[in-house]
Computed example of a mutant assay.
Amino acid sequence: MKPNNGEHAYTNHLIHEKSPYLLQHAHNPVDWWPWCDEAFKIARRYNRPVFLSVGYS
């Protein structure tokens, strides 16, 4: 869902990536993270599972 002003309603951690594949998911309403130590640190801190997407295209 986009706001009426043309901006994106959601932005996740993929917005800082260089990969065109990852960038196309940067505005999904999912808190996607790139593969990094910080993502695992956050998951451990909040006792959350890590869902890994191997991608498709």
Rank of each mutant, 00 (worst) to 15 (best):
H25A: 12
P29Q: 11
F40W: 12
P3A: 11
Y21N: 08
A43M: 01
W33N: 03
Q24L: 03
N12Y: 03
A43G: 04
A43W: 02
W32T: 07
Y21K: 08
L14V: 00
H16V: 11
P34F: 01
V54S: 04
H27S: 09
R44I: 07
K41S: 13
M1I: 06
V50I: 15
N12F: 06
A26C: 09
P3G: 13
E17I: 00
T11A: 09
P20K: 10
P34N: 04
R48Y: 08
S57L: 12
K18G: 05
E38W: 01
V54Q: 03
L23D: 07
I15K: 15
K18Y: 02
N5P: 08
A9Q: 13
G55W: 06
E17P: 04
G55Q: 09
H13N: 06
E17G: 05
E38A: 07
W35H: 10
P29R: 12
K18W: 04
I42A: 10
D37S: 14
I15F: 05
C36G: 14
W35S: 11
I42W: 05
S19N: 15
E38T: 12
V50P: 12
W35P: 08
S57Q: 13
N47T: 09
A43I: 02
N5C: 11
R48F: 03
I15H: 03
D31G: 02
K18F: 04
Y21D: 05
F51L: 15
H27C: 07
K41P: 00
K2P: 03
L23H: 03
N4Y: 09
L23T: 04
Y56A: 10
C36S: 15
Y46M: 14
S19G: 04
P34R: 01
Q24E: 06
H16L: 11
D37A: 14
S57G: 12
K2L: 13
V30W: 01
D37F: 05
P3Q: 04
M1V: 09
P20E: 07
E38C: 03
H8R: 10
E17W: 02
A9H: 04
P29Y: 08
A39Q: 09
S57A: 13
P29L: 07
V50W: 13
Y56I: 13
H25V: 00
A43P: 03
V50F: 08
E38F: 01
R45C: 08
I15R: 09
W33Q: 13
W33G: 01
K41W: 02
N4T: 04
Q24Y: 06
H25T: 02
T11W: 02
P3N: 12
W32A: 06
R48H: 11
V54N: 02
T11I: 10
Y10F: 15
D31M: 02
H13M: 06
N12T: 08
Y46E: 14
Y56R: 12
E17D: 07
N4F: 12
H16T: 14
F51G: 06
L14A: 01
K2Q: 10
P3C: 10
K41Y: 02
R45T: 14
N28M: 02
S19A: 01
L22N: 06
P49M: 11
I15Y: 08
G6M: 07
K18S: 14
N12R: 00
H8M: 08
P49Y: 09
